[in-house]
Design a protein around this nucleic acid. Sequence first.
DNA 1: ATGAAAGCGCTAACAT
DNA 2: ATGTTAGCGCTTTCAT
Lengths: 334, 334
Amino acid sequence: MKVTIYDVAAKAGVSIATVSKVINNTGKMRDVTRHKVLEVMKELNYHPSVMASALMGKATETLGLLVPDISNPFFSEIARTIEDRAHEQGMSVIMCSTDENEVKERKYLELLQRKQVDGLIVASSFNDRNILKQLVKNDVPLVMLTQHDAALGVTSVSVDDFTGGFEATSHLFSLGHKNVIIIAENTPSSKMRLYGYREAHEAHDMVFSEDNIIRTNASVANGKKCFDEILKREQQTTAIFACNDLLAIGVLQGAKEKGISVPDRLSLVGFDDTILAKTTAPALTTIAQPIEDMGNRVVDVIIETIKGKISSKERILYKPKLIVRETTGKVIDS
Amino acid sequence: MKVTIYDVAAKAGVSIATVSKVINNTGKMRDVTRHKVLEVMKELNYHPSVMASALMGKATETLGLLVPDISNPFFSEIARTIEDRAHEQGMSVIMCSTDENEVKERKYLELLQRKQVDGLIVASSFNDRNILKQLVKNDVPLVMLTQHDAALGVTSVSVDDFTGGFEATSHLFSLGHKNVIIIAENTPSSKMRLYGYREAHEAHDMVFSEDNIIRTNASVANGKKCFDEILKREQQTTAIFACNDLLAIGVLQGAKEKGISVPDRLSLVGFDDTILAKTTAPALTTIAQPIEDMGNRVVDVIIETIKGKISSKERILYKPKLIVRETTGKVIDS
DNA sequence: ATGAAAGCGCTAACAT
DNA sequence: ATGTTAGCGCTTTCAT
C-alpha cells in the first residue's frame, strides 16, 4: 500500500506533526530528529501526497496552460520553454488546446479550476473577456501570454505586435511593393499587427484599403486557401504579409503549386520565426519573437503572482525582430 | 469563498451524503431531491474538488505524458491528438519533456506519482527499464507509446518501425543506390528501424557495414552535424536514411549550404511525416506514422487500463507508409 | 430515500 | 523540541 505520513512517523518514532515539519522545513527541531525522519522517508520511499496538502489549502504545484493549438510550432516551442522553467520550480503544467473555441475555453478553464491549479497562463484569445474578468475577480493568479488586455488588469507577456506588423509591412514597402495584402487572424495579437500594418501605410504614404485584409485562422491549409482567393483578384499582388508562419507556409505552398516564383513574382513575410521559417525553401522572411525569453518570463511572472509578490500589473513587451531570409525581394516591374 | 458540498447541502436542505450521491450518480433517491440538488449546484456554481475526491481514492482524471521533446513536431502533433481524446473523456494531461535524460525521467515520474495521475503514457525511452518495471509492479497504469518492451508486459502503441526502416532503405536501394547511410537515435524505435535497414540489405543483396551507421539525438542541428561528418568521408555517399524528420531536415539544410543538390546528388528519406516533411523544398520523402490513430488509440488503451478492463498486454502495431516526395531519385552515375 | 459519521493524508494552531 | 487535535472537501458504509 501507499506509504503515508503515519508510516514514517511510526517508524521514526515521532509524531506526524514532526514529520510534517521536516517535509515543509518549518518549525524547529533537533538535528538528530530531522535526520532520523529524513532517513526513514528515504527508506520507505515516502512521497507526500499533493492531494492531501492541496486539500489543506496548499499549492498543487500545477500550472494550467491555455494555447490555441499545441501542434502549432510556435506554441509547442513556447510550451517547451514554459515546461522547463516550471519544472525548475517544481511545478508541472497541464496543457489545453482551445482552438480559440469559446466552448472549449470555458470547459478547460472549469476543469483546471476543479483541479485547483495554482495559476493560469493564457495564450488563447477569449473573445468573451468576461470569463477572464470573473477569474481575476476571484483572485485566480493569471497571466496573459502573446496578448494584453488593459481592462483586465493582469500582467501580460507578449511581443510588440504593433511594431512587428509595422516592420513587416515597411520591409515590403521599402522593397518597392505598392500593394501589400495582409492575412490576419481574429486574435488580439493579429489585431495589433494589423494596426502596425496600417501605420506602415501612413509612414510610407501608401493608401490603405480594407480590401487588402483577409481574415482566417492559423493553419497551413488556410494559408493556401487565402492565397487561392488572392489569385482570383484582378489586380496582381506582389506582396503578402501573413500574420504567422503557418499561414505564410500555406501561401508558399500555394505559390509553388501555381508556379509563381518567390520572391521573384511574390514577396512574403511571416511572423513567429518558428522552425518552419528556417526549414522551408526559400527560407521564410519573418518577424521573430523571442520565444525562449517569453516562455521563461511568463512562468517567472505567474509564480510571482501566485506568491502574491506582484501587485503591479505590468505589460511586458518584447522586441520583435525582422529576419530577412529568402522570400522577400525587390519588386520587379513587368 | 469556495463553495463546497456543505453549501450545496445546506441550501438544498439535504445532507452532504445526498449531494455526493447526485454528484456521482450513485444510490437511489427521489427525482425531486435530485433535481433540487442539481438546481442548487447550478445556482451556486458548484464544482466538486478533485483534490478531495482523489484523497478518497477516486481518480484524479489526469494523465501523465512523457515525451522526449514536446517541441519536436512529431510529439507535439501526437500530443495534440492525445489531449483532445483525453479531454473527450474528461481527463487532462500533464506533459513532460524528458530529453531522454534519465535524471529528468526519474524526476518527472516521481512528480507525476505524487500528483496521483491515473495513468502514464510513456514515449520517452527509459534506458533504465527498471524504473518502469517498478511502476508496473506497483500497478501504476502504464502504456508505452512509439516503443514496445516485451519484458515489461504492458500494452504498447507504435508504428511497425522495423518495416518502416525496411521500406525506407529498400526504396533507396531500388532507386539504384549502392551505399545507404543511416542516421539513428539511441531509442528503441530507432533500433527497430535500424534492424529494418539491415534486413533491407539482405533482401537487396547489399553488404551491410557498421560504418554506415551514425548515431545522434533528434534535432535539426544534429542532422546537419552528421551530414558534415558524412561529407568528410572519402567514399561519396548518394543516399541517407535519417531516422526522423528533424534529422532529415538538418541534412537537407546541410546539403543546401554545401550546394549539393537533392535529389540529384543526394537522396534522402526521413521518418514521421510531420508538418516539416510537407513544407520543405524539396518536400521530404519520408515514412508516415498514423499520428492521429496512434494518439487516439493510446488514450483509449490507457483509460481501459485504468478501469482495469485490460488484462491482455497487447502490442498494437500500426502500418507505416512510405510517402515518396521530392528528396529521393534515381542514382545518377557520374 | 436520506442522513450520521468515520476517515482519506496532510497542515497548523495549540499544548505540553 | 515534540505531540495532540481539529479540520480541509469529499466518499461510503451503516443506520434510520
